[in-house]
Deep mutational scan, measured.
Amino acid sequence: MASQGTKRSYEQMETDGERQNATEIRASVGKMIDGIGRFYIQMCTELKLSDYEGRLIQNSLTIERMVLSAFDERRNKYLEEHPSAGKDPKKTGGPIYKRVDRKWMRELVLYDKEEIRRIWRQANNGDDATAGLTHMMIWHSNLNDTTYQRTRALVRTGMDPRMCSLMQGSTLPRRSGAAGAAVKGVGTMVMELIRMIKRGINDRNFWRGENGRKTRSAYERMCNILKGKFQTAAQRAMMDQVRESRNPGNAEIEDLIFLARSALILRGSVAHKSCLPACVYGPAVASGYDFEKEGYSLVGIDPFKLLQNSQVYSLIRPNENPAHKSQLVWMACNSAAFEDLRVLSFIRGTKVSPRGKLSTRGVQIASNENMDAMESSTLELRSRYWAIRTRSGGNTNQQRASAGQISVQPAFSVQRNLPFDKPTIMAAFTGNTEGRTSDMRAEIIRMMEGAKPEEMSFQGRGVFELSDERAANPIVPSFDMSNEGSYFFGDNAEEYDN
């Protein structure tokens, strides 16, 4: 993207840094990872977990959730003011799984939030270390993106479920800051804005008074975040219109849905970061690795190297396929839920299948599930090659597409044709070009129609051997075009429920 120079890199967003050079960025990201790792080690000690239990991804998720809940100030305040039966607002906890007599047992633990905050700050040299908290939120978000298709949420806001490739980060909490905003897809931002506008339509006082002023500035800020994701002048001009509207209503909703559809071809720039579970960072720190000293990046080879040398386990339900569970977590670790499966298959070195073909449910185990038949197995999170994460949407291309997802959002900077089903997408653009945004709409449609099938995206960008740390010898991959490109292809993934 041309304006790259004016933006802070995501590592800076990730670490609240002012302008830093590459070495400083690597050190501050490393410091953040160190903090998460030290916190995780301490929690495993508190909970008396064995090494194996500490490497269980379900335990990692519970521990991450506990610290996120302990620092969720708004919710904590709300819980104190609106006490609900049987919930102690000062405590947080969740299921911890232990191996007892050759069987997995679930144990519900409860801790004072104050105590968890103390352990977290102690692991982070006394700081609140917001960057580390956001990092864990993005890992949870990436896992949700890989596990669930947001059909219901899309339909509720009037969008087409086939636009799911635009929904990265749709389950990120509001408090995820600049680093969170960077990884949100165009569809996620559109959905947040539509929800806001709908509230304004239904509630006369939404934009009024002292609160209304705050609401208005939040609305304009979200519009600017979305505008910054678009790469064409016409899309940005249309966002200006939406932002400046005196009284946002149905016309703005129409414009936003139009823009979301246009992003299936004229893709937005959305950041991709490899955020790993805390149970990967903990053992690495415990083994003596100093992330701050060595430096770390979320968008280069580092996460690949770390996963190459990590042992992570997962509980497996009786009829689940461990290899499929591994694929789910591998995609989440690489922030690749909406990437082209052919690119992923090449990088991973084994075939990556669409969601609907995987015999696996989510990673988390519900409290009512029976533990008797639970097994555990090693997650295979290694890769054959590594590639640089991208934040450009890439230019655009036609490809055989599917009944489910009709476009992709690249996660890796790797040369390819970008699949999208042009006739299906263009069919949504018939007729409606009147109104105050008509010239911009016409211009956007013209650009979409001009998108050429034979153009290559990320020209000359390749993948790298894991021994090639400096990215000196790019390998331009070859793809098996007979395979499906979309992950949520004609899909039956479970729906995400809060």
Results as ranks from 00 to 15, higher is better:
Trp330Ala: 05
Asp72Tyr: 09
Ala27Trp: 02
Met481Gly: 09
Met456Gly: 15
Lys214Gln: 14
Arg199Asp: 02
Glu375Leu: 14
Gly362Arg: 07
Gly35His: 13
Ala179Glu: 12
Arg441Cys: 07
Asp421Leu: 14
Ala70Glu: 09
Thr62Pro: 06
Lys87Arg: 10
Asp340Ala: 03
Thr130Trp: 06
Lys214Met: 10
Phe464Ser: 04
Met191Asp: 02
Asn483Thr: 04
Arg348Gln: 08
Gln235Val: 03
Asp340Val: 08
Asp372Arg: 02
Gln327Ser: 09
Thr424Tyr: 01
His135Asp: 07
Ala85Leu: 09
Ile116Asp: 06
Asn417Met: 06
Ala403Phe: 01
Ala493His: 12
Lys229Arg: 04
Pro477Val: 00
Ala332Cys: 03
Glu254Phe: 13
Leu256Trp: 02
Asp480Ala: 11
Met105Gly: 13
Arg246Val: 06
Gln42Glu: 09
Thr232Gly: 01
Ser28His: 12
Arg118Asp: 02
Ser413Val: 05
Pro248Thr: 13
Met163Asn: 00
Phe420Trp: 00
Ala153Gly: 11
Asp88Cys: 15
Pro161Ser: 15
Lys7Cys: 01
Tyr385Asn: 12
Glu375Phe: 12
Leu47Asn: 06
Met440Glu: 05
Asn432Phe: 14
Ala332Phe: 06
Trp330Asp: 14
Asn334Glu: 06
Val408Lys: 03
Val67Pro: 01
Met1Leu: 11
Val312Met: 15
Ser297Ala: 04
Trp330Cys: 08
Ser170Ala: 09
Asp101His: 06
Trp330Leu: 08
Arg99Pro: 00
Arg195Lys: 11
Phe230Tyr: 10
Asp255Glu: 12
Ile25Gln: 15
Pro89Leu: 07
Ile197Phe: 10
Val100Arg: 11
Leu256Thr: 10
Thr92Gly: 12
Glu73Arg: 06
Ala234Phe: 05
Asn250Ser: 12
Leu108Cys: 14
Gly300Thr: 03
Ile36Glu: 07
Ser438Gly: 15
Ile116Met: 08
Pro248Arg: 03
Ser310Cys: 15
Asn144Tyr: 06
Gly362Glu: 10
Met481Leu: 08
Lys98Leu: 13
Pro477Gln: 00
Ile33Asp: 04
Ile475Ala: 09
Ser176His: 03
Met238Gly: 13
Ile119Arg: 01
Ile365Glu: 06
Glu465Trp: 10
Ser457Glu: 01
Arg19Phe: 12
Arg436Met: 03
Gln12Trp: 04
Arg213Pro: 03
Gln12Pro: 00
Glu375Cys: 14
Ala451Ile: 06
Ile138Val: 11
Arg55Lys: 15
Lys31Tyr: 02
Gln168Val: 04
Lys91Met: 10
Thr147Asp: 05
Asn205Gln: 08
Phe458Tyr: 15
Ala401Leu: 00
Arg221Gln: 04
Phe258Ile: 05
Gly86Lys: 14
Gly435Val: 05
Phe479Glu: 00
Val363Arg: 01
Val312Leu: 13
Arg74Trp: 07
Asp491Met: 14
Gln149Ser: 11
Phe464Val: 03
Asp439Asn: 12
Trp120Ala: 10
Cys279Ala: 13
Ser314Lys: 02
Arg317His: 07
Met167Ser: 07
Gly185Tyr: 05
Tyr40Thr: 09
Leu418Phe: 01
Phe71Glu: 05
Asp302Gly: 00
Ser245Ala: 15
Thr215Asp: 07
Ala403Ile: 01
Ile197Lys: 06
Pro173Asp: 10
Ala233Gln: 08
Ile301Glu: 07
Ala263Tyr: 02
Ser310Ile: 10
Ala428Ser: 12
Asn247Tyr: 12
Leu110Asp: 08
Leu79Lys: 03
Asn144Ile: 13
Ser274Trp: 09
Glu434Cys: 09
Asn370Glu: 13
Ala387Gly: 15
Arg174His: 04
Asn492Val: 01
Phe304Thr: 10
Glu81Pro: 00
Phe258Gln: 07
Leu49Cys: 08
Glu494Gly: 03
Ala373Asp: 03
Thr23Pro: 01
Lys48Trp: 03
Lys113Arg: 10
Arg106Lys: 14
Arg267Lys: 15
Met440Asp: 12
Gly54Glu: 09
Phe429Thr: 00
Ala493Gln: 13
Asn144Lys: 05
Arg267Thr: 02
Lys87Pro: 04
Pro354Thr: 09
Glu81Ile: 13
Trp139Lys: 04
Ile197Gln: 05
Met32Lys: 08
Gly228Ile: 05
Thr45Cys: 14
Ser438Ile: 00
Gly94Val: 08
Leu110Lys: 12
Met1Gln: 11
Lys229Phe: 10
Lys227Ser: 10
Arg150Pro: 10
Ser176Asn: 03
Ser376Ile: 06
Ala451Tyr: 15
Lys293Trp: 02
Glu375Lys: 13
Asn432Glu: 00
Asp51Trp: 01
Arg470Ala: 05
Ser376Lys: 09
Leu264His: 10
Gly362His: 08
Ser60Ala: 07
Ile33Asn: 05
Arg106Met: 10
Leu306Thr: 14
Ile445Asp: 02
Ala251Gly: 05
Gln12Lys: 15
Asn368Thr: 15
Arg174Asn: 12
Met32Val: 13
Leu56Pro: 09
Met137Ser: 05
Ile225Thr: 14
Ala442His: 00
Pro161Gly: 14
Asn21Phe: 00
Ala233Pro: 15
Asn370Ser: 10
Ser274Gly: 11
Val100Lys: 02
Asn202Val: 07
Lys48Ile: 09
Gly356Met: 11
Thr45Tyr: 02
Arg204Leu: 06
Ala284Ile: 09
Gln415Asp: 00
Gly295Asn: 08
Pro354Ser: 04
Ser345Asp: 13
Phe488Leu: 08
Pro474Asp: 00
Ile197Gly: 09
Phe291Val: 09
Ser3Pro: 00
Thr151Asn: 07
Asn76Ser: 08
Glu449Ser: 11
Met374Glu: 02
Met32Glu: 05
Arg267Gly: 05
Asn124Ser: 13
Arg461Asp: 03
Tyr52Pro: 09
His324Leu: 05
Asp340His: 13
Thr171Glu: 07
Ser217Asp: 00
Ala286Val: 10
Phe230Cys: 11
Ile388Val: 08
Ala153Tyr: 06
Lys48Val: 10
Asn76Gly: 03
Met222Ala: 13
Asp203Tyr: 08
Ser392Gly: 12
Asp372Leu: 08
Asn492Pro: 00
Asp302Gln: 15
Ile197Arg: 01
Met189Arg: 00
Arg355Val: 10
Asn473Gly: 00
Glu294Thr: 14
Asn144Trp: 05
Pro283Asn: 04
Thr23Ala: 13
Lys305Cys: 07
Cys164Asn: 14
Ile41Gly: 13
Asp51Glu: 09
Gly5Met: 02
Arg348Val: 07
Thr15Asn: 09
Tyr281Met: 07
Ala2Glu: 07
Glu46Tyr: 02
Trp139Ile: 09
Met447Cys: 09
His272Gly: 09
Gly268Met: 07
Ser176Glu: 04
Pro423Tyr: 04
Thr146Glu: 04
Gly349Cys: 04
Ile194Lys: 08
Ile197Ala: 14
Leu49Gln: 09
Asn483His: 12
Val270Pro: 00
Leu381Ser: 03
Ser84Cys: 13
Ser353His: 02
Asn397Ser: 05
Val190Asn: 03
Pro173Ile: 02
Pro83Trp: 02
His324Gly: 08
Asp497Trp: 05
Arg199Pro: 05
Gly356Tyr: 08
Asn211Pro: 07
Met447Trp: 05
Gly268Val: 15
Gln364Thr: 14
Pro95Arg: 08
Pro83Asn: 13
Ser314Asn: 11
Leu61Pro: 02
Ser262Lys: 02
Asp290Lys: 08
Thr232Ile: 12
Tyr281Pro: 10
Leu344Arg: 02
Gly228Asn: 12
Lys77Trp: 00
Ala336Pro: 00
Val242Met: 15
Leu49Asp: 08
Phe206Ser: 08
Arg55Pro: 09
Cys333Ala: 15
Ile194Ala: 09
Ser314Trp: 03
Asp421Gly: 00
Ile25His: 02
Ala427Lys: 02
Gly177Phe: 12
Ser326His: 11
Cys333His: 02
Pro283Trp: 11
Asn76His: 01
Ser297Asp: 03
Phe230Val: 12
Pro83Tyr: 06
Thr130Cys: 12
Lys452Phe: 14
Ala181Lys: 03
Ile365Val: 11
Pro322Gln: 11
Pro322Phe: 06
Gln241Asp: 10
Glu244Thr: 05
Gly295Trp: 12
Tyr313Thr: 02
Thr45Val: 15
Tyr52Gln: 02
His324Thr: 06
Arg38Val: 04
Arg246Asp: 01
Ile445Glu: 04
Phe71His: 10
Arg416Pro: 01
Val270Trp: 06
Arg118Gly: 06
Lys31Trp: 04
Ile445Cys: 14
Arg118Lys: 15
Arg391Gln: 03
Arg175Ile: 01
Arg152Gly: 06
Met137Pro: 09
Trp139Gly: 11
Pro423Arg: 15
Arg199Ile: 03
Leu381Tyr: 02
Ala263His: 02
Val476Ile: 00
Glu24Lys: 10
Asn498Ile: 14
Thr232Lys: 15
Thr433Lys: 04
Met447Tyr: 09
Ala129Met: 15
Gln58Lys: 12
Arg446Pro: 13
Pro248Asp: 04
Thr157Tyr: 01
Glu375Asn: 11
Asn59Pro: 04
Ala129Cys: 07
Asp51Val: 13
Cys333Tyr: 09
Gly37Leu: 08
Asp160Thr: 07
Glu484Arg: 00
Lys7Asn: 13
Thr433Ile: 15
